[in-house]
Simulated assay, not measured.
Amino acid sequence: ETVCRATAPLLPLTTEEIWRGLTGGRSVHLADYPAADQLPADDALVAAMDTVREVCSATSALRKARSLRNRLPLSTLTVVVADPAGLEGFESIVADEVNVKAVRLLAADADEAAAYGVEQKLTVNARAAGPRLGKDVQHAIKGSKSGDWSVAEDGTVTAGGLALVEGEYTLETVAGAADDTTAVGMLPGGGFVVLDTEVTDELAAEGLARDVVRAVQQARRDAGLEVSDRISLIVSGPADVQAAVAAHEAMVAEETLALSVRTEDAAELSVQVARA
């Protein structure tokens, strides 16, 4: 904080000097603001990032619903969308954001996608369709419930042999029943995600090691250590904590800047840090 306060008055002068060196201009403060229409546009990138945000949001909701804390790594996330090629190259971003080991992209029309039990559901709005269809609206409602409905290539929706117009129905994609090892979530823009929720012993140990890292980072702050300070670390806890730290000692040491890591037996998790 002290460093930031001391350098803050100098930053405008520093950025001015960098700008003049790069452009040869008199001053950045005499330059015009850039026009938005002159900046490069990449509609495909924007659309891909919108989908990435939807995927991460839906996956986070599934984690919360299953009480799977964010620091607990999971095995696989399958993303099912109409154009999976549009998300290629973004798998690592999604994996880091939702803490999964692997992200799979799958086309919505693939045979495997159908196995997840995701289907479309048609609901007829009787109040909206009634004035136009009269008594026939009951046939449309019955058709929507019995599966006697379809969507034509031009988007026309028919139920019980009667064509419906926009506003008279709701067409939504619903997830099938999830089981103990998977959770399915829908994407607002179309498609869905399938999260592998099975927690193996290896994943549980890594999650526990990350909990230790969080505890150590808090202990560093409480001790008033600088961000760059190296430490010696003692982790006390039951057998599962000690085993997790032993299995992921390199990660714990790297994340906490610990030059030495030692474990001790205790009923509950606690950490001791000292400047090395």
Rank of each mutant, 00 (worst) to 15 (best):
Glu1His: 13
Glu1Ala: 11
Ala8Phe: 14
Leu10Met: 06
Leu13Gln: 10
Glu16Tyr: 05
Trp19Asn: 08
Leu22Gly: 08
Leu22Gln: 10
Thr23Lys: 14
Gly24His: 06
Arg26Tyr: 04
Arg26Val: 13
Leu30Asn: 08
Ala31Phe: 06
Ala35Glu: 15
Ala36Pro: 07
Asp37Asn: 13
Asp43His: 10
Ala44Val: 06
Leu45Phe: 12
Val46Phe: 07
Met49Phe: 06
Asp50Gln: 11
Thr51Asn: 05
Thr51Leu: 10
Val52Leu: 01
Glu54Gln: 13
Ala58Thr: 11
Leu62Lys: 01
Lys64Ser: 02
Ala65Val: 10
Ser67Met: 11
Leu68His: 06
Arg69Ile: 09
Leu77Asp: 00
Thr78Gly: 01
Val81Gly: 02
Val81Gln: 10
Val81Cys: 08
Val81Phe: 06
Ala82Phe: 07
Gly86Asp: 02
Leu87Lys: 03
Ile93Phe: 04
Ile93Asp: 08
Glu97Phe: 02
Val98Tyr: 00
Val100Gly: 01
Val103Ile: 09
Asp109Val: 11
Ala115Trp: 09
Glu119Gly: 13
Thr123Lys: 14
Val124Tyr: 07
Asn125Tyr: 09
Asn125Ile: 11
Ala129Trp: 01
Gly130Val: 00
Val137Leu: 03
Ile141Ser: 04
Lys145Gln: 06
Trp149Lys: 01
Trp149Val: 05
Ser150Gln: 13
Gly155Ala: 15
Val157Met: 03
Ala163Glu: 15
Leu164Met: 09
Leu164Thr: 08
Tyr169Gly: 04
Thr170Lys: 10
Glu172Tyr: 04
Glu172Thr: 12
Ala178Gln: 09
Asp180Met: 05
Thr182His: 15
Leu187Asp: 10
Pro188Asn: 10
Gly189Glu: 14
Gly190Thr: 12
Gly190Pro: 10
Gly190Met: 15
Val193Tyr: 06
Leu195Met: 12
Asp196Phe: 14
Thr197His: 05
Glu198His: 05
Val199Trp: 03
Ala204Tyr: 03
Ala205Val: 02
Gly207Arg: 00
Gly207His: 01
Gly207Phe: 00
Leu208His: 00
Arg210Leu: 08
Ala215Thr: 15
Gly224Ser: 07
Leu225His: 05
Val227Glu: 12
Ser232Glu: 15
Ile234Lys: 12
Pro238Asp: 13
Gln242Arg: 15
Glu249His: 14
Met251Asp: 12
Ala258Asn: 10
Ser260Pro: 06
Arg262Ser: 11
Arg262Trp: 07
Asp265Asn: 10
Asp265Phe: 03
Ala266Val: 04
Ala266Ser: 08
Ala267Thr: 05
Glu268Pro: 02
Ser270Pro: 01
